[in-house]
């Protein structure tokens, strides 16, 4: 059972930040999706829902998702639907049920750097940065690797608008389950960007596969079945695939090959 000693709902980020650094164990509340699991003792819970972080904004060059934006908002956003083949909405739409997606937040997910996340994988295939309130802006890739160096608040994610085509693929057995593996692929002109998540480790770029495909495509202007097969071998080798209850590492390797091929076929 959850144990919260004190609860505050600050009206500004600065106020929230002051609470955060005021004591050890101070915890930010995002969507609270997994908060109730297990027993947790939280001396001070800081609710971010009043700090104005629930928005999807379109700027000239970027789209910004406030940290308290829910997956439900992402799924229904007219703005997001216009970009990247609506990949962000498509990445979240199979997660459990809408009544959970209406609670799960962008910030809670990204800040927690969940390995099983479908959303992070999709986000990562775009040109995405995260804005931490005190420490400033970081590339998502850097943030996923390092997290926050000090207590800080994830304010928003910033996605650069470009005309990349993006595809999200996931393999799950039951439709209510977490993915055994997910993969996002983007095509930016003649270049490919590939991210694999739920390995079950955190989403990561398949750099060698990307390089291989980029070179092959630059030379041949097409990707033959043989090239796709080779790319599959590369992706299975270059990333680490682990085993857990949902799948073994061998199986995940195989899924990576299959999802990669299916994703490429959609953008070629």
């Amino acid at each position: 059972m959850l144990n919260i000693q004190e609860y505050v709902a600050p009206n500004s980020l600065e106020e929230a930040y002051q609470y955060l650094i005021s004591q050890k164990g101070a915890t930010l509340l995002g969507g609270c999706a997994y908060l109730n699991l297990g027993t947790r003792n939280i001396p001070l819970a800081i609710d971010l829902s009043r700090t104005g972080l629930s928005y999807i904004r379109e700027n000239e060059d970027t789209i910004e998702l406030g940290a308290m934006t829910t997956f439900g908002d992402v799924e229904h956003s007219a703005i997001l639907a216009r970009y990247f083949n609506n990949i962000l909405a498509l990445s979240v739409r199979d997660i459990v049920g809408i009544q959970l997606r209406n609670l799960v937040t962008v910030g809670g997910t990204v800040y927690s750097r969940y390995g099983f996340s479908d959303f992070i994988t999709a986000l990562h295939v775009l040109d995405t940065q995260v804005k931490l309130y005190k420490q400033g802006i970081f590339d998502l890739e850097y943030f996923l690797e390092n997290g926050s160096k000090e207590p800080d608040i994830l304010e928003k994610v910033i996605i650069k608008k470009d005309n990349r085509q993006a595809v999200f693929k996931a393999m799950r057995n039951s439709r209510g389950d977490y993915a055994i593996l997910n993969l996002a692929l983007a095509r930016i002109g003649d270049k490919f960007r590939i991210v694999v998540g739920a390995r079950p480790g955190r989403a990561a770029l398949a750099l060698n596969t990307m390089e291989y495909l980029n070179n092959e495509y630059a030379q041949k202007r097409e990707l033959s079945p043989e090239i796709l097969k080779n790319a599959g071998e590369i992706i299975a080798e270059e990333l680490s695939f682990g085993s857990n209850g949902r799948g073994s590492s061998e199986y995940r390797k195989e899924l990576a090959k299959v999802l990669l091929r299916k994703a490429i076929q959609e953008v070629i």
Partner: peptide
């Protein structure tokens, strides 16, 4: 929403 996943004080 899931009422099991929302804190009332929020």
């Amino acid at each position: 929403v899931l009422s099991c996943t929302v804190l009332t004080c929020r």
